[in-house]
Amino acid sequence: MDKRQHLVTTAFELFYREGVHAVGINRVLEAAGVAKKTLYHHFDSKEALVAAVVEYRDGRYRDWLLARMARAGTGQRALAGLFAALDDWFNDRDPAIRPFHGCFFINVSAEYGDPAHPIHQLCADHKRAIAAQVTGVMAQITDDPEQQQRLAQAVLLLKEGCIVQAHVCGDRSAAVRAGELLTALLREAGLAAGPA
């Protein structure tokens, strides 16, 4: 791993566990075992490092989630795979994504609360990319564009809600219940339920 990537992954671990504003540059340098000159060779500011960390987590998280969905199958199986993946994440069962400290993008966007801030925008871009993937899966389930959008929004609300419930309230079974609610919603919409 090169020094830039080492700085990014080290900063991610600290920012994810403790928060961006709670972790100073000197703490990142100490944990990474690099000199300040090395950091500023790769990043001109702490915010540039934070942006790189958000982009790093975006790539890692999306690759992980999309792989878990693809492994489950297509259509409703992929959606079941999404909630199974979240359940494994919440309960620290998947070494590819653990540990669970809530949604990094929700956490970071709260620290950069201005929606126009570039780091807040990077977090929003991540959420939009996940939304596009879910909408694409919904197109495998129904041909009705209006129904696709409505059900995709329901999936996204269930996904985000169960992440917050697991993190803020410590409810590590939230993804299981969200998946069950989705199955019921799909039945009510006149679509066959996926396999258990």
Rank of each mutant, 00 (worst) to 15 (best):
Q121N: 04
A116H: 11
P118V: 08
V155P: 00
V137R: 05
H126E: 13
A96V: 12
Q140L: 05
L122Y: 05
H101P: 00
A154R: 10
P145N: 04
D92K: 09
E160H: 12
L151S: 01
V108W: 00
T142W: 10
E111K: 02
A139V: 08
A96M: 09
I141N: 02
A139S: 14
A166K: 06
N107R: 13
A124D: 15
S109D: 06
E111A: 05
L156F: 05
V108M: 02
A96L: 14
L122S: 07
H117G: 01
S109H: 04
H117N: 08
L156Y: 04
I119L: 03
H126M: 08
Q140M: 10
M138I: 06
P118S: 05
A129Q: 15
R128C: 09
Q121K: 12
D125H: 14
I130S: 11
I130Y: 09
H120V: 02
G136P: 04
D144N: 14
I141M: 11
D94K: 06
V164Y: 11
Y112W: 03
H117K: 01
F100H: 07
Q140D: 15
T135K: 12
P99L: 05
Q149Y: 04
C169Q: 15
H101T: 05
Y112P: 00
A154K: 07
A110H: 10
L158D: 01
I106C: 05
V137G: 01
Q121S: 10
Q147F: 05
L151W: 01
A129C: 11
I97N: 07
Q165T: 14
D92A: 14
G161R: 02
I130W: 04
R98C: 08
E146K: 11
P95M: 03
H117P: 00
V155M: 00
G170P: 06
